[in-house]
Amino acid sequence: MKLLTLNFLTCARRTCKSSPLSFPLHPCDAELEIADVDFSLDFLRNILPRLEWDAMVALCSELSLPLSATVPAAAELSGAGDEPTQSAKDLHHLLLETNITAGKLVCGNCGHEYAIKEGIANFLLPAHMV
């Protein structure tokens, strides 16, 4: 599961959604792996303003990965001739190519742990928890 995904995930329990503690979920015992994804400057430009940057910074620091404390401005993503800058390539690598292949995602509100196996996170809840 690519790190970008985490920006859009909360606890699946209805009672947790209203709590700010249910976002972001906290990776635990995470195993990371890199997988190539085609680079698209437009995709990156479009997705950056939609990220909860502080949450992503916190997540990355939990995973000991580097992410600048402030959102890069659009101008920092491309240089002359619309060539992607190194910082655009780094962001692509971090958000789209860095995957959690195994481990858990833990809700900061209820403590429920969602397993990640073979890169797939499982959010199915037992009936009494929905």
């Binding site: 599961m1 690519k2 970008l4 995904t5 859009f8 995930l9 909360t10 606890c11 699946a12 329990r13 209805r14 959604k17 976002f23 979920l25 994804v37 085609d38 698209s40 995709f43 789209l96 969602y114 073979e118 890169g119 797939i120 996170a121 499982n122 959010f123 199915l124 809840l125 929905v130």
Partner: peptide, 30 residues
């Protein structure tokens, strides 16, 4: 998202998107 882990594994190969296992009435999104 899909309830089937086996189908989700196949779905997860499509970049740049993401796929996860979840139930329609308890999705892990804001």
């Amino acid at each position: 998202s899909d309830r089937s882990t086996n189908l989700t594994k196949i779905a997860s190969t499509h970049q740049p998107h993401s796929a996860l296992v979840a139930d329609t009435i308890a999705l892990p999104h804001k």
